[in-house]
């Protein structure tokens, strides 16, 4: 059993912090909408080796972040977003 979490607000909302506090090993986090601003700089929260981080390509491009993204975060397009939902048993959306 694993869960995909989406985070769609900027880091200042501190949703990622709450999300990671109830996450379990093997879960994944996908940043969408303003959530993709998490990918711009390395933070302690992102150095969590038990969780895989992804970000939505279309939202990165829109915000001028496609070349500023951390290498450690994998980019997926909306098809990849659907695949992540299929690959995990549950979805929790943080908005």
């Amino acid at each position: 059993m694993s869960t995909l979490h989406t985070v769609s607000k900027a880091p200042s909302f501190r949703l990622l912090e709450t999300c990671l506090s109830i996450i379990q090993a093997g879960d994944a986090v996908l940043f969408i909408e303003d959530g993709v601003y998490h990918c711009q700089q390395s933070t302690e929260l992102l150095r969590n080796s038990e969780v895989k981080f992804y970000c939505l390509r279309e939202d990165l491009i829109a915000r001028g972040l496609i070349d500023r993204k951390l290498d450690t975060i994998e980019t997926v397009n909306t098809q990849g977003f659907v695949d992540l939902c299929v690959q995990h048993d549950g979805i929790v959306n943080w908005f």
Partner: peptide, 17 residues
């Protein structure tokens, strides 16, 4: 605790957050 919430969430069929 947050750990207990994590378990509850993991055991759910759907979550409205």
């Amino acid at each position: 605790s947050r750990g207990e919430i994590a378990k509850i969430v993991r055991a759910s069929d759907s979550v409205f957050n």
